[in-house]
């Protein structure tokens, strides 16, 4: 077998916008995303996204789509129903998540004495982590870790889950810039919900503008600087510093 068979041909450039069915590469390539699929020795994209090319490794960042749960992810869920021993939580994924009473109460749960509503009611936001998720079962959440639990203050901003990596940025560059420029507390959950807590409403408004800009222009370059400039302009407009 000639070694030319294994010769790698990469048909795309770094950060190129690709669509389903687009031929990305041929030959033996390392693939970092389940959204790139292979037929014979050809690699194709299965979604619309940005391709990341590093030497012989291909990755794909989707630009659209629901949040797909992963064990260990930090998520912000919305309680939408209450069962006998659990809560049903919407995490903006194809599947509803379950939060068990025994996990949230951190002790044995007594259905006669304990009223689940007192802990989390329908309409409450909860900061949690995905503890379990597989093909047979819906995601199970846990709030056992420090810092997790019911959200009682601040505001939740929703952005497309595919944009979350951009809000955080490489080595948290974007997120740190946002915190620095606005002075707000920001927690970015993987499922496209962002908790913000600001000194006053004006900073909150500016931060939301910045987040929306990131969502819209996530696929472009030089975004961190442009967002920083936007925040500075908005602060100036309002006479803030």
């Amino acid at each position: 077998m000639a070694s030319e068979d294994k010769q790698v041909k990469i048909h795309v450039t770094q950060r190129q916008l690709v669509v389903p069915g687009e031929l990305l590469a041929e030959g033996e390539v390392e693939v970092g995303s389940p959204l790139i699929y292979k037929i014979d020795n050809k690699y194709y994209s299965s979604v619309i996204g940005l391709v990341d090319v590093q030497e012989n490794k291909l990755n794909l960042i989707p630009l659209e789509g629901y949040y797909f749960p992963k064990v260990g992810d930090l998520v912000i869920g919305l309680v939408i129903d209450i069962g006998i021993t659990n809560w049903i939580v919407d995490i903006r994924a194809p599947y509803k998540a379950i939060m068990n009473a025994s996990d949230a109460l951190n002790r044995q749960f007594n259905p006669i004495q304990d009223d689940l509503r007192r802990y989390f009611d329908i309409g409450d936001y909860v900061l949690a982590k995905i503890a379990l998720f597989d093909r047979l079962h819906n995601p199970v959440l846990t709030v056992k870790e420090k810092g997790l639990g019911k959200i009682v203050s601040g505001k939740i901003v929703e952005i497309a889950p595919s944009r979350v990596p951009r809000v955080i940025g490489k080595r948290k560059s974007m997120l740190n810039m946002l915190i620095e420029e606005t002075g707000c507390e920001i927690v970015v959950a993987q499922n496209g919900r962002i908790w913000i807590n600001c000194k006053d409403k004006q900073f909150e408004d500016i931060l939301i503008l910045a987040l929306k800009k990131i969502e819209l222009e996530a696929h472009t370059t030089g975004l961190t600087d442009r967002v920083r400039n936007l925040i500075k302009e908005e602060k100036a407009k309002r006479g803030l510093s």
């Binding site: 669509v19 389903p20 069915g21 194709y44 299965s46 979604v47 619309i48 989707p62 659209e64 595919s162």
Partner: peptide
């Protein structure tokens, strides 16, 4: 389907 981000082999 592509706009919804649903993985497909091809358009």
């Amino acid at each position: 389907l592509a706009d919804a981000g649903i993985p497909m082999r091809d358009l």
